Amino acid sequence: KWTITVQGEEAIKWAIKVAEARNLDYTVHIDGDQAHITIE
């Protein structure tokens, strides 16, 4: 299990796209213009 933090709307969209493309189980916690994405 690991967490990445991305900043900015484009980076958030990209990170989610990558997680979905790899069929990963993930949760997103949005904090202002940052998102913390935890991959199970």
Results as ranks from 00 to 15, higher is better:
A35G: 05
Q7F: 14
K1M: 09
E10M: 11
K1R: 13
V6E: 01
V18Y: 15
H29E: 13
T5F: 09
I12H: 01
A15Y: 13
A35P: 03
K1A: 10
A15F: 15
H29L: 13
W14C: 14
R22I: 14
A21T: 10
E40W: 15
A11P: 02
W14M: 09
N23G: 15
V6P: 00
V18Q: 13
I37K: 00
W14R: 07
K17H: 11
I37R: 00
E20R: 09
Q34K: 14
Q34R: 13
W14T: 04
K17L: 12
I16S: 01
K13A: 12
N23F: 08
E40R: 14
K13E: 08
E20N: 09
A15C: 11
V6I: 10
E10W: 13
Q34E: 09
Q7Y: 14
R22M: 15
V18G: 04
G8Q: 01
I12P: 00
Q7W: 14
V6T: 02
Q7H: 12
N23L: 08
T27M: 06
G8L: 05
W14E: 05
G32I: 04
I4D: 00
E20C: 14
G8R: 03
E9L: 12
Q7L: 11
I37M: 05
Q34W: 15
I4Y: 10
G8Y: 04
A11Y: 08
A21F: 10
A21N: 10
T3I: 12
H29A: 09
Q34D: 06
G32T: 03
T3F: 10
E10Y: 10
I30P: 03
Q7M: 13
I37V: 06
Y26G: 01
E40K: 13
A21V: 06
D31E: 12
E40M: 14
R22S: 15
Q34Y: 14
E9Y: 11
W2P: 01
H36C: 11
N23I: 05
K13F: 08
V28W: 06
A11L: 10
K13D: 04
D31K: 08
I12E: 01
E40L: 15
A15G: 02
L24D: 03
I30N: 04
I4G: 01
E10V: 09
A21K: 07
A21M: 12
V18K: 05
V18P: 00
E20F: 06
A19S: 03
Q7V: 13
V18M: 14
K13N: 07
D25P: 15
V6L: 09
A19H: 02
A11D: 04
I30F: 13
E10G: 07
K17E: 12
H36F: 13
W14Y: 09
I30D: 03
E40F: 15
I16Q: 03
N23D: 07
I39P: 00
A15W: 15
D31G: 03
I4H: 02
W2F: 09
D33M: 09
Q7G: 04
Y26I: 10
D33T: 09
R22N: 14
E20I: 13
G8D: 03
V6M: 05
T38K: 04
G32V: 04
E20H: 06
E9D: 10
T38S: 06
A21I: 11
E9C: 14
A19L: 15
A35S: 03
V18I: 13
E10C: 15
H36L: 12
V28H: 01
K17G: 11
A19D: 01
W2E: 01
H36S: 10
N23Y: 07
W2Q: 02
T5A: 05
E9V: 11
R22Q: 14
Q34V: 15
I37F: 14
W2G: 01
K1Q: 09
T5E: 03
N23H: 12
H29M: 12
I12V: 05
I39V: 07
G8H: 02
H29N: 08
D25F: 14
E40T: 14
E10T: 10
I39H: 02
K1I: 08
I30L: 11
D33C: 13
K1N: 07
E10A: 12
A15N: 01
I39G: 02
A11C: 15
K13P: 01
T38Y: 09
I39K: 00
R22W: 15
N23M: 10
I16A: 01
K1S: 11
D33G: 08
I39T: 02
D25K: 15
I16V: 07
W14H: 06
T3G: 03
W14G: 03
D25V: 15
H36I: 15
L24P: 03
I39L: 09
A35M: 09
D31N: 09
G8I: 10
V18F: 15
T38G: 02
I16F: 04
T38F: 06
A21R: 07
I4S: 00
K1P: 08
T27K: 09
D25M: 14
V6C: 11
G8M: 04
A21W: 12
G32E: 04
I39M: 08
V6A: 04
T5Q: 06
V6K: 01
T27S: 10
R22A: 14
W14F: 08
Y26F: 12
I12T: 03
I12R: 05
D33E: 09
I16M: 06
D31R: 08
H29P: 01
D33S: 09
T27N: 06
G8S: 05
I16K: 03
G32P: 02
Q34I: 15
T5V: 12
T27H: 08
G8T: 05
T27Q: 07
Y26K: 00
Q7T: 13
A15P: 00
A11H: 06
T3N: 04
I30Y: 14
I12Q: 02
L24C: 13
T38N: 04
